[in-house]
């Protein structure tokens, strides 16, 4: 197998990258494009810290072959605030002390965004379900669930999108 050129859109920018055989989307995002909000907690689908959106769907970038993202629109945490302004979902994480070491945070925010994009007014159980693929070793989850509840409320008050 040989190196290969693929094209994809990342955070609204067209990118052409050369990938090695079996490279993951995580490799491309973290190592080639230096989007280090994409974390690597386990590299095997167990922690959710590498969560990104691929064509609007929540994906574990460590389990996604880069080749499969050819032509796709990929969004990482960096893509949420292209203007450098913190978006309401991030603001809710800040206000609820929903990050301690912060290693899970980028993946949590992406999972929460995916949830709120398809269900802007989730119940507590739906939030818990929506975050069930993401581990946190620090916060005890309660502040994170509260942050997503607050973000959902803020969005319904303003009628905006999650980001």
């Amino acid at each position: 197998m040989e190196d290969k050129l693929i094209r994809l859109t990342v955070n609204g920018r067209d990118e052409a990258v050369i990938i090695q055989p079996l490279a993951t989307l995580q490799d491309v995002l973290r190592d080639t494009l230096e989007l280090t909000a994409v974390k690597s907690g386990c590299g095997q689908g167990g922690c959710g810290s590498c969560s990104v959106l691929v064509d609007g769907e929540l994906r574990l970038s460590c389990l996604t072959l880069a080749e499969r993202a050819e032509g796709a629109e990929v969004t990482t945490l960096e893509g949420l605030n292209a203007t450098n302004a913190i978006v309401p979902l991030q603001q809710a994480f800040v206000e609820n002390y929903a990050a301690q070491c912060g290693y899970c945070t980028a993946g949590m925010v992406m999972a929460a965004k995916a949830l709120l994009d398809r269900n802007p007014a989730p119940s507590r159980d739906e939030i818990v379900e929506g975050l069930s693929g993401n581990l946190c070793r620090c916060t005890g989850f309660a502040p994170i669930v509260r942050a997503v509840q607050q973000a959902a409320q803020a969005l319904s008050d303003t009628g905006e999108e999650a980001s």
């Binding site: 095997q44 922690c47 975050l131 989850f141």
Partner: peptide, 17 residues
């Protein structure tokens, strides 16, 4: 050796503290 086998509680196992 991985998170599939090292069980830990998730958000749904957290009671009101």
């Amino acid at each position: 050796v991985d998170f599939q086998n090292y069980l830990q509680p998730g958000a749904s196992e957290m009671p009101e503290v």
